[in-house]
């Protein structure tokens, strides 16, 4: 088994390709090297994006459902918060390894692990978002004859959207960062270019890979923000 588990020392990545050879040999910051090798980062970037989107998607679906459930069955809040925050505490690298005996190597442990980390953030925001819906909204909704489900989906959830999406934003930013460690699960991503001794000292590589991770976090954050504005037009309507 262990033969398959050895992390490729450099991810099959040969540093010495193009650019200014002496600059590369000195671990320098070499614009020409970056220009020559940028194309080799697209695949890791896409892998990274894929990991984030899929795991946050799955994680959101689960945490959102758990949140709705616990909003009804309030006794579930404490145990679910306890379990999800304990899981969140486990270092991601450890998590990615601890999942491997069950899930093998590759995308499976990475996605499961990342989805686990989104739980506490999204769950908590769903619960507080729903709890912060003003009492008179709930009262008015029931008083006009909405059933519990109608009230939940027509009034409570829409009013909790800002808080829920705030949770989603944090989850996305966190997941982009944690997905950098998904390389330990054998799932690729930009982390692949950073967790190798011969690459982490190479400034050109770090600038590209580290920069891409950071920019990806920022870009996805903006995307969720835009989505939030789209979903809550009423929040922009200020007293005319």
């Amino acid at each position: 088994m262990s033969a398959a588990l050895v992390i490729a020392q450099s991810g099959g990545f040969v540093r010495e390709r193009g650019g200014d050879a002496s600059c590369v040999a000195n671990d320098g910051f070499c614009p020409t090297w970056i220009a020559d090798n940028l194309d080799r980062y697209w695949t890791p970037l896409l892998e990274h994006l894929y990991l984030v989107v899929v795991s946050v998607g799955i994680g959101f679906a689960i945490a959102f459902s758990l949140g709705l459930l616990a909003h009804r069955q309030r006794w579930l809040i404490a145990p679910l918060t306890g379990v999800t925050s304990a899981l969140y505490t486990i270092p991601s690298i450890a998590m990615f390894f601890l999942l491997q005996p069950l899930l093998g190597r590759g995308n499976a442990p990475a996605i499961v692990g990342l989805a686990i980390y989104t739980q506490v953030i999204i769950f908590r925001n769903v619960i507080t978002g729903l709890a912060n819906v003003p009492g008179e909204m709930v009262d008015a909704a029931s008083g006009m004859g909405m059933t519990k489900n109608q009230r939940l989906f027509r009034v409570e959830v829409p009013l909790a959207v800002p808080e829920i999406l705030a949770g989603l934003r944090i989850a996305v930013a966190t997941t982009v960062g944690l997905a950098a460690f998904a390389a330990f699960a054998g799932a690729g991503g930009l982390g692949q270019k950073l967790i190798v001794a011969s690459l982490i000292t190479f400034k050109s590589n770090v600038v590209v890979a580290g920069g891409m991770v950071t920019l990806l976090a920022a870009a996805l954050d903006l995307a969720v923000l835009g989505f939030q504005r789209l979903l809550t037009p009423w929040r922009r309507a200020v007293a005319a």
């Binding site: 909204m137 008015a140 008083g143 006009m144 004859g145 909405m146 059933t147 009034v155 009013l159 959207v161």
Partner: peptide
């Protein structure tokens, strides 16, 4: 049935309770 009953009864409260998202 409570829901059906309520739909036939107008309901106005002090806090008004208009839905801000609608």
């Amino acid at each position: 049935k409570p829901e059906e009953l309520r739909r036939e009864i107008g309901y106005v409260i002090q806090q008004i309770g208009l839905f801000p998202h609608r």
